[in-house]
Simulated scan of single mutants.
Amino acid sequence: MNDTIALLERRRSAPPAVLTGPGPTAGELETILTLAARVPDHGKLAPWRFVVFEGAARARVGRIAEMIRLEDQPDLDDKARAEERGRFARAPLVVAVVSRAAPHVKIPEWEQVLSAGAVCMNLIVAARALGFTATWLTEWTAYDARFREAIGLAEHERIAGFLHIGRAPPVEDRVRPSLAAIVTTFPG
């Protein structure tokens, strides 16, 4: 079997809480991000960018998430507070893929958004090819304007996904849709 096909057949998401270290080295991360950026990008706009959370930055961004949640829910219990503080520490490394889609004279914003989604998938495949597991999540932090501003996003930027990267034990596959349920052949 072709190595690429085998790699794609083995791809699974794992809950970030089961991801362990070590995470990617600086060289491996550079490879992952370089390959993630090799996606269709009409107009060569690079309508996406990366924010990397590693080491102590994971705890710092978790405290930001906790503070924002406390603004909305001042009576947040200790368990929920700890969950927010640990949100970005569940995996050795978290990469935010940021969509910078914006109006353009030739390239529809929708195509720019799709390009950011392709970056997320390339990142997952590149991480897997290097022996890691990568899980693509958004969660509430991706949609909260205060959080996005606190991590340095511009007003028009959106989070396409938080990619949690680490090592995971084998994960059982989930049920996948049958092709008969999702494929239509247009009549000729």
Rank of each mutant, 00 (worst) to 15 (best):
M1Q: 05
T4L: 02
L7Q: 12
L8P: 02
E9Q: 13
R11W: 06
S13D: 09
S13N: 06
P15H: 09
P16Q: 14
L19R: 07
T20R: 14
T20P: 02
P22I: 00
P22T: 04
G23N: 08
T25M: 01
E28C: 06
E28W: 01
V39C: 09
P40L: 02
H42C: 03
H42N: 09
A46E: 13
P47F: 06
F53Q: 10
V61Y: 02
I64A: 10
A65Y: 06
A65H: 09
A65I: 11
M67G: 04
D72R: 15
Q73H: 12
A82M: 09
E83G: 08
E84Q: 14
G86V: 05
G86A: 15
R90H: 02
L93F: 03
P103K: 11
L114W: 13
L114H: 08
M121T: 06
L123Q: 02
A127C: 06
L130E: 07
T133Y: 01
W136A: 05
L137I: 03
T141F: 12
D144L: 06
A154I: 00
R158V: 08
R158C: 09
L163Y: 03
H164E: 10
G166R: 10
D173A: 15
I182K: 14
I182H: 10
V183T: 13
P187D: 15
G188I: 09
